[in-house]
Write a protein that binds this DNA or RNA. Structure first.
Lengths: 194, 194
DNA sequence: GCGACACTGTTACCGCCGGTAACAGGAGGT
DNA sequence: ACCTCCTGTTACCGGCGGTAACAGTGTCGC
């Protein structure tokens, strides 16, 4: 026995991976016993590592939101003309939706909710702040201009809403939707500039 | 005893009202026993009326989404110039958010979820279709033009995202936000027109 | 008047889940 | 040898969703 790592953090990672697998298989209502079984251990170990179910789900959510935020920031801050960066960022988001819809479902409609929604909210907030800063800079607004914050929140919601719809209908290619949304934002941006 | 109505539907309404009160007091994780106690009866009666907890929550969600949709459709189709109608509709939505945030929380982050989310999704979809038809008409697009659908989904998401942020920060008057969002949409609309 | 019946309501239970206490080894220090 | 700490287990508790089985009551047919 004990061929597995006894290191604290890597063990934690392994447990999170098991939890992830079960959540993606059974949906967001996965039981702690099922997760423990998947990891080859029993419940109390899970509780010693994560406190309670909320803690485990929070850790899982944090992991995913961090990963997603990194991807988005990377796409947004990489080189290229502004319009291309926006397109790339939107497409990155849609690509995650496309390749891991279960994760998305877990994050937004997690049935065992409070801590997950907390992490999702901070994720959304961080993304909004990032966008708000960029927008304020682009439009030469004051850093705390209300319009920048509302703009940012609106853009995030807009992409999410359109992505949601697309995830259900799948009525066009991903890149086509990305381009359409980019055009849409670009038009509004240009309009607000004058 | 039995001064209350024995009529089937009004009894059902009374039960839903009790469920509503408990949900708004205890959050979305209200137990069936608590709801039954609030209504002055016991669990099996609830189950005979609604089947299971999902059924009760679905009925509750349907009631609220129907009410909200009626209010929005009313605001949108009432008289006045287009821009004023948009402003009025957005403000109606924000007014509901402001006056009944618990209901909103119940609908979007209900912890006992599946049927509630189902009703919310159909609500959003109906709203999107409504908007898409209006947009397609205004912009003289084909009725099944993809852009209209994406526009509609985006607008719904945009208002929701901005409303969400506002509900947490409360950093401006409601009408100010409504006007800001209207301007924003109007600018984008004007841009896409040319 | 009087059983049959349907309806409304109750109590008491089941199974499952989240969460925890209490115990069973084994590694290492003295 | 013994104590200690750590990791793992089993076995349990309370509460929830959901249901079966039973008790009272008004209404029929006769």
């Amino acid at each position: 026995m004990t061929s597995l790592l006894h290191d604290r953090t890597s063990r934690r990672d392994a447990l999170l991976a098991a939890a992830d697998a079960v959540v993606q298989r059974d949906g967001a209502s996965a039981s702690m016993a099922a997760i423990a079984a998947e990891a080859g251990i029993t419940k109390p170990i899970l509780y010693r590592h994560f406190g309670d179910k909320g803690g485990l789900y929070a850790a899982l959510a944090e992991r995913h939101t961090d990963r997603l935020l990194d991807a988005l920031v990377g796409a947004l801050t990489a080189g290229g003309p502004p319009r291309e960066r926006v397109l790339r960022t939107i497409d990155t988001y849609l690509a995650v939706l496309e390749s891991e819809p279960q994760v998305y479902r877990f994050l937004v409609q997690s049935e065992e909710a409070a801590p997950v929604h907390g992490h999702v909210r901070t994720f959304v907030r961080r993304l909004q702040e990032l966008l708000a800063a960029g927008i304020a800079h682009e439009l030469r607004l004051e850093p705390d201009d209300l319009r920048a914050a509302v703009w940012a929140a609106g853009i995030v919601g807009l992409v999410q809403g359109a992505g949601d719809r697309w995830l259900e209908s799948r009525d066009c290619e991903r890149l086509q939707l990305s381009a359409l949304l980019t055009d849409l934002l670009w038009g509004a941006y240009g309009a607000s500039r004058e």
